[in-house]
Amino acid sequence: MSAIASSGMTRSIRKNQGIIVVLVLLAVLLVFGAFVSERFRTANNLLNILEQSTGLALVSLGQTLTILTGGIDLSVGSMISLLSTLTSGMINGDGSMVAPVVVGVLALGLVFGLINGILIIWLKVHPLIVTLGTGAVMQGLVLLYSLGPAGKVPKGFTYLAYGKLLGIPVGAIFVVVVFALVGWFLTYFRLGRYIYAVGDDDTGARLMGLPRAKVLLTVYAFSGFCCAMTAIYLVARFGVGQPYTGLNYTLASITPVVVGGTLLTGGKGGVLGTLLGVYLISLLNNVLNFMDVSTHYQLIAQGLIVIAAVSIYVEKRKRV
């Protein structure tokens, strides 16, 4: 397993110089942060960064696959809001409800994602529009369900967010494992290669008889599943779900993907870049925090990073 993972990693590094750029930026930020503040240098702070990046990492993982096919999933924010509100609302402090609700919410994420995929295939409308629409519907639904924070979760539930295994946050370990599995799937499974093929040349993939519908259903269903995982993590972290929890995740989930070198036009990139992109964004926000830079300027910095990233990886001309 480790041999497979590492050979997959070197391969994706060779194919994606973006990863080197991100690694260099990560190193620069680490050194810079160490100069800025003594507290930044502590292991505790670094573990904190890992722990806080879990939610963003999971939703960006699903987003990576949709973008690899040349699509996009703009419903993730609303879906996270809906699923997290349902999670705490239905558990409502009852320990015996935890298992069924978690399973149910994961299944619901899959179903919502499948609906996105089916609409995209059936209506032949660009994923941008379809997921914009389904996202709006889901935002409306969650506000019908609750206008504010709903329910609560038992104390033990927070373990998912704050628990530690050998001193490392469980969420961070889970993220690395899931990313490795998906990276393995993308590299060594036929369906994983088809994801790249569809994103690289949709018409060509169709003419070659590749199972385009199956690919699209898989990536959008998986994106929905990732939203469900993010939603559950966020409920564990905040102790409750509310109808605007996911609001910022729609756009935030795209940033690490693009920064990590996956092209919005599809067909190029991978999950390793996204994971490093997530760490880069989390590290940047952390360093800016230590520099006492207000969140307003953090916003500017993030926007500028996106512009810089997409300007480095020049894309093919594309219709969106």
Partner: peptide, 12 residues
Amino acid sequence: SPFLATLATMIV
């Protein structure tokens, strides 16, 4: 891509 360019300027 227009989506990303205008998104970034929106955020900035």
